[in-house]
Amino acid sequence: MVLSSFANRIGNGLFNTAAALYFTRVAHLPATQVGLGLSVAGLVGMLAGVPAGYLADRRGPRTVMLVTLAVQTATMLGFLAVRSWWAFTVVAALDTLALCANNAARGAVIARVGEDRPAAFRARLRAVANLGVVLGALGAAVAVQWDTPAAYTALILSNAASYLVCGLLLLRVPDYQPVPRPVRERRRLLVLRDRPFLCFAAVSGLMGLQYPLVSLVLPIWIASHTQAPRWTVAAVAVVNSGVCVLLQARIGGRIETPAHGGAALRKAGLLFLLSCPLLALTARAQAWPAAVLLAVAITLHSLGEIYESSGGFALGFGLAPDRAQGEYQGLLGLGFDLGQALGPALLTTLCLGWGERGWLALGLGFAVLGATGPRVAEWGRRTRGAALGQAA
């Protein structure tokens, strides 16, 4: 499972780093059309998570993963033929549907592979995944430097090949059979009646705004609002990934129960409350002091990212019943995807539009969300029997 995830993320790093350049420079689509198409695809893809998770619970999660990997291989090859906005949007929507379905089924597989410690295993996977993305991004940098159609095409073919490798390695993972559910539950989605988990999914989705904050907003902030050297844009990305690779498994391995997860979300909120004002201060500093502030701020932010993701794993797996892990992970993915879809508009308005006040407001928002973590965890623990329709 670790090797499968690693192969997949190398391919993602190769493709995602230079995808926008391929679509604009090789497929000759305007950047605005690419952005619109990806937004449409993201909204369509959100529809797949919960149904795919339900299917994974009823038919076996590995089977669903293998089918979605086959679809993603086909969509990668389909991108090579894209030369119009409609074709691009259709292929991107199919790709995103398969991705969201894969993530839901993958969560169910992780819950079974991780046995009694799924959150710790998920943290280990995330550390390996970050390393794979870094390696893929380094390979993409070569293609971007060459800046030829052949180089960009090679990235897409490599990503398609990574899905095949991922699937072949996944065949070595046991084909876990569905966990039986009571007859009265077989036609109902448990997760839609589980209010504590619905609340947690909303909190998790909003705290997930910290991802586009680093990938989208921070590079623009550094380049347009600070005097820091331009190379700090790349340095910030390297530090962010490096901290996650080095510390994700070490910290995440200690965050396993819902109670641990709630406390971790609170700690993440406090770390974001420290990092956001520091990022705001970079606008007032000279070049090298700004670079130092950025290094400190992104280190704190990366630690917050580790605690936020590890807390989410502990709550996501710990509050979900074994017989509906795919269904629950699908809803969790839906909340995350919705946050990512709304994030760019919200974050650019706050941080780039409001400036320093926006950064402070964002830090306070993260702290408030994190503070709800322990309460949500306790609510979930206290109501597991009633929320799942079982005898307490």
Rank of each mutant, 00 (worst) to 15 (best):
W379G: 02
R266M: 15
P180L: 01
R122F: 15
L155A: 08
L99I: 12
A137D: 02
H225V: 10
L293G: 11
T96F: 11
V34P: 00
A129S: 15
P289W: 07
P212S: 13
F15N: 04
V233P: 06
A237Y: 07
G335N: 13
R126K: 11
N102H: 14
G261V: 09
L265Y: 04
P51R: 13
P51K: 14
H28L: 14
S204A: 15
L138G: 11
G304S: 12
V214C: 00
L66N: 14
L206S: 03
A137H: 01
A123E: 02
A141H: 14
T257M: 03
T32N: 11
A392P: 12
G42Y: 04
L29W: 11
L315Y: 02
N16G: 05
V34H: 05
A31W: 09
G311T: 08
W231A: 07
Q325G: 11
L347W: 03
V296Y: 01
A361Y: 05
Q340W: 15
Q72V: 10
V109K: 09
G253F: 10
C166W: 08
A119K: 06
M65P: 05
W379F: 04
L55M: 14
A7R: 09
D337F: 04
G355D: 03
V64S: 09
M1D: 08
I251G: 05
R382F: 03
S275W: 01
V243N: 00
D175W: 11
F272C: 02
W354T: 01
V292S: 02
F6Y: 13
Y22N: 08
T232E: 04
P61K: 10
W221M: 07
V238Q: 02
W231P: 00
Y163F: 15
V165K: 12
V236I: 15
G60E: 08
T96P: 00
L338A: 14
A237W: 08
L21D: 04
L168A: 13
A41H: 06
Q210R: 06
T73P: 05
S275H: 00
G326R: 13
R172Y: 04
S204M: 13
G262A: 06
A18Y: 06
G60F: 13
G45D: 09
P258I: 07
D337I: 02
D337S: 13
G343C: 10
V191N: 06
Y307F: 15
G11H: 12
P229S: 04
G363C: 00
A41W: 05
V368C: 14
Q340M: 13
A161K: 13
P174S: 05
L94Q: 09
